[in-house]
């Protein structure tokens, strides 16, 4: 469950104040947030992830006002309850695919379960590159790994920032369907922030900034 209330944000050295519509998602509900470049989409995603502190308003995830807790508690909360998917698929370069997932579980404070990792890799069809180094993966494999990293720890909220902007139509649908499927499997809220209108049809719930 995620809920925001009168959220605003202002960057230092900028007079512009971003003001965001309220969000209220119940369990398993997904949301698509559309908007043009520079409108504050990524800012909103970073606010929801607790990476930025709002100028005013509050964000409640699983009944916790995330900006009212200490920084160290917020780090832990984020690690346990939030999964982030980025436009540029990234993982720790010095680790293999499976080690990245193990590190993700370790840092989120969850026990490392190799059966769960194997199951997820199989679901995302990247079992074959389980022990591969990150720099040997294809773009498609990196995207799937990015999704795996965001869901392996069973988060309450999955936040995806422009996950399809550089993909063709076919792969665009594949990635969003994978995200929706994983969110459903883990009972998480999925919030996708994008300017890509091709995926609008895949969401029943959307807002435009």
């Amino acid at each position: 469950m995620i809920q925001t209330d009168n959220l605003t944000f202002q960057y230092k050295k900028s007079e512009h104040i971003f003001s965001f519509p309220n969000i209220a998602l119940k369990e398993r509900e997904n949301l698509l947030i559309l908007g043009k470049s520079g409108i504050g989409k990524t800012t909103l995603l970073h606010l929801l992830a607790g990476l930025l502190k709002p100028a005013s308003g509050k964000i409640v995830i699983e009944e916790i006002d995330i900006h009212s807790i200490s920084r160290s508690k917020l780090d832990k909360f984020r690690g346990r309850n939030i999964g982030l998917v980025f436009q540029k698929k990234h993982a720790i370069q010095s680790l293999s695919v499976v080690e990245n997932l193990q590190a993700r579980l370790f840092l989120s404070g969850k026990s490392i379960n190799n059966t769960v990792i194997d199951f997820l890799l199989k679901q995302l069809d990247i079992s074959a590159c389980k022990n591969s180094k990150i720099n040997t993966l294809s773009e498609g494999q990196l995207q799937r790994l990015g999704i795996a990293m965001a869901v392996i720890h069973n988060p309450q909220v999955i936040l995806a920032d422009e996950p399809t902007s550089s993909l063709d139509d076919e792969n665009c649908n594949v990635v969003i369907e994978l995200l929706i499927k994983q969110a459903k499997l883990t009972n998480a809220n999925l919030i996708v922030i994008t300017h890509d209108h091709r995926i609008k049809s895949l969401f029943s719930n959307s807002i435009t900034l």
Binding site: S72, D75, K76, R78, G79, I82, L107, G109
Partner: peptide, 12 residues
């Protein structure tokens, strides 16, 4: 970016 990513994973 990797280090920032680790922070999003919950690393302090």
């Amino acid at each position: 970016f990797d280090l920032a990513l680790l922070r999003t994973y919950g690393a302090s």
